[in-house]
């Protein structure tokens, strides 16, 4: 298995080196210029609806495109004390409708289950970003489908493609077969099945240096092929653009695709995506309780530009006055039909 960039001592493991890379590259227009042209500078938040929590960087997979640089060698894990701060912030913020749990593999956090149990008392929509293979990684995870069902979690899972070779290129050898097996287990308890009310959504992201095709066309292909070949059902498909940071940035640079990929993103810039950007209705919480505008800013260590930067001083009023931090990676969320954790946005 591959190592994370951090474990292999790669310079792009450090957020400041990624930001320097963007700053020194003068081939592309600045994202801030695009916002200024659209009179959206500074970019301001809208009503906070999504509370996204990164439970840690530990993962059983080492995906080639991972913006978290997650893997088995990452030990950063959210503590129970920080989870309690999350619960308090959610309780105090009625506008939050969704709690979105991500990682790494969030299930690898030893407090994952008690946290979900506590969250389910708050009557919010809970999303678990499950990488599928975790369900089969160890006996102790085999009952996760039942656990998700018990707490009415929405399961959102990456399956970068409906064909084995492309999925395994991105996520590692054998991942496709295990993912199919895990999807069957989720279907078995009702996830993705019509009338069950248990939502199972899949995430497509390109296995290479290109943009996603239109989400609807792709969804039709996924539905047809996964049902025909494997008897698998799911609800929706989210097509997500790879954001040029961390491991994906390293891939682009190493494969000499960076210039062409950034050119594609910049040329596909679509101002109609600005209203629906996820950073405008989301707060992203790091494993250590620090606050960010989105998961990508979190990985670039671009904390909220506010007096409030940590859960311990969570104050929605103050956060609402912040300007959202943007940089060159934001061209990823504004290209074409746009991209968010829920797929296309325009």
């Amino acid at each position: 298995m591959h190592k994370s960039l951090l474990a292999s001592g790669h310079s792009l493991a450090q957020p400041e080196n990624q930001l320097r890379f963007f700053a020194e590259d003068e081939r592309f227009p600045r994202f801030t210029e695009r916002l200024q042209a659209a009179t959206e500078w500074p970019l301001k938040p809208q009503q906070l609806q999504v509370f996204q929590v990164n439970l840690g960087k530990m993962c059983n997979q080492v995906c080639a495109h991972c913006h978290v640089d997650a893997g088995p060698d990452r030990k950063e894990i959210m503590t129970w004390e920080t989870m309690e701060l999350c619960i308090q912030a959610i309780k105090n913020t009625p506008s939050i409708s969704t709690v979105d749990l991500t990682g790494g593999a969030p299930e690898m956090n030893p407090h994952f289950r008690p946290f979900v149990e506590a969250l389910s008392q708050l009557r919010k929509q809970i999303i678990v970003r499950c990488n599928l293979t975790i369900i089969l990684a160890n006996k102790k995870y085999n009952d996760l489908p039942d656990f998700y069902k018990q707490h009415n979690c929405q399961v959102v899972s990456s399956l970068p493609f409906y064909a084995e070779s492309r999925t395994d290129k991105q996520r590692g050898d054998g991942v496709f077969k295990k993912s199919i097996e895990a999807l069957k287990l989720l279907n078995k308890v009702g996830y993705g099945m019509e009338g069950s009310g248990l939502e199972l959504h899949l995430v497509y992201n390109p296995a290479g240096a290109f943009l996603p095709p239109p989400q609807e066309q792709l969804k039709a292909d996924y539905k047809a092929i996964l049902q025909q070949e494997y008897g698998i059902s799911f609800n929706d498909l989210f097509a997500i653009t790879n954001i040029p940071i961390s491991r994906y940035l390293n891939y682009l640079v190493k494969s000499e695709n960076y210039e062409a990929y950034m050119t594609k993103l910049v040329n596909a810039y679509n101002p109609a995506t600005l209203q629906g950007l996820m950073c405008r209705n989301t707060i992203s919480v790091g494993w250590d309780g620090y606050l960010y505008d989105c998961d990508f800013n979190q990985m670039l260590d671009l904390k909220t530009a506010s007096t409030v930067q940590h859960l311990s001083t969570f104050d929605l009023q103050a956060l609402n006055h912040r300007a959202i931090q943007v940089n060159q990676h934001c061209f990823g969320c504004t290209a074409g039909s746009g991209s968010s954790c829920g797929g296309e946005i325009a």
């Binding site: 493609f161 064909a163 390109p206 943009l211 095709p213 792709l218």
Partner: peptide, 11 residues
């Protein structure tokens, strides 16, 4: 080659 691959055709 790019377009066909992006749109989901296999190698």
């Amino acid at each position: 080659s790019s377009t066909a691959y992006e749109k989901g055709y296999s190698e």
